[in-house]
Write a protein that binds this DNA or RNA. Structure first.
Lengths: 197, 197
DNA sequence: GGCCTTGTTGAGCAGTGCTCGACAAGATAG
DNA sequence: CTATCTTGTCGAGCACTGCTCAACAAGGCC
């Protein structure tokens, strides 16, 4: 019989195991038995904590998202005009350090699952909010559209950059490039809101 | 007994069925039986054509990718300086017209599967090549990095825009914005290639 | 000590991906 | 027209997996 744990501890343990395993293999390749065996518990108990395998996966991805959002956070000690750079630098650093898990959780994930989609949406929204706050611009639908797009650009840069074995550019330079790209993208919005012809 | 078809025809039929079904539900929710039933054949025959369910899915995604690349193609009659705009307009139009399938195949897909990843990579590369050719810039690793990132931006814009029930901006304006964003992003590259400090 | 809560088990069901040996419809040759 | 070969097709069956459920055991409380 497995050691008896408190609800919270057991949940944390199971999610931790998920973070480990699912960083290197997709959900459909992970059987509930494997998780249970690794935790030293029975299959049934896993379903006591997570009604569904999808629910379990969602909980794991949610934990990963929390880690990302925590990592990509500029501390309050950062000067206002360096907030954006600090956030982007932290984000890029996170992707570089945890490339495989990042891809597994935020690219590979069963994107069709509405739960997972919701998590992705939350992360995007949170990052967009931070960037918007750092620029000081009002959060109109159009500015949000542009900033979300800019984050996609940043993600692409970070992922590609983290995949190079001999990076073409230094991480700091990449961050500078990404940060400097945002004002131009926002300036171009004038044409969108006031459509000429 | 099912009508006897030629190899090519049967494959085409099965892939067509996949394009229909998988546009609205994820693979793991699609059973081989359902495909077989819809095609009026036995389960076994499906595995004769596609050794694995994953192989089948990959074939379907490949077909979807081919459709996307065909749609997002500027005809030879387009003037050189309009090629980029034409390509982007076609791409955005495709996403707007086929939003659900687009998300299902190019976002939802089992991203962990190396076959699927390879297809995504091919699409990205092909689109990047077209954009680079249209700008006339040399295809260095750094310009590719930037153009790939720009395509991510464009995809984000297109997906977000196609999801709005009352679009904040007209599609043409969005295309203009996207196209006009590229030169600025490429100009900023100077700082990357010649790092100061 | 008795009892309620709660963490835990293990057998078992339904469904799914995949294999495999056999069969049948056309094409080809004699 | 028959014999043979190719090739598209079937369906039973295996192994496994997600999930259910009734029973059990370890604390905590009175």
């Amino acid at each position: 019989m497995a050691e008896r744990l408190r609800q919270d501890d057991r949940r944390r343990q199971l999610i931790g195991i998920g973070l480990e395993i699912l960083a290197t293999k997709p959900i459909h390749a992970l059987s509930v038995d494997e998780v249970a065996a690794r935790a030293g518990i029975s299959r049934g108990l896993l379903f006591h904590y997570f009604a569904t395998k999808q629910d379990y996966y969602a909980a794991v991805v949610r934990a990963a998202a929390r880690r990302l959002l925590t990592a990509a956070q500029a501390g309050p000690e950062v000067a206002p005009d360096r907030q954006l750079r600090s956030t982007v630098a932290a984000y890029v650093g996170f992707v570089v350090r945890h490339r495989e898990p990042y891809l597994a959780f935020f690219r590979g994930g069963a994107g069709a699952d509405p739960q997972i989609q919701a998590i992705y949406e939350e992360v995007r929204d949170a990052l967009t909010d931070r960037a918007l706050a750092a620029t000081g611009l009002p959060a109109s639908p159009v500015t949000r559209l542009a900033v979300r797009g800019w984050w996609s650009l940043v993600e692409s840069l970070a992922v590609d950059h983290s995949g190079e074995r001999a990076p073409a550019v230094a991480s700091e330079a990449l961050v500078s490039y990404a940060v400097d790209a945002l004002p131009g993208l926002l300036a171009g919005l004038d044409r969108l809101t006031a459509p000429a012809i």
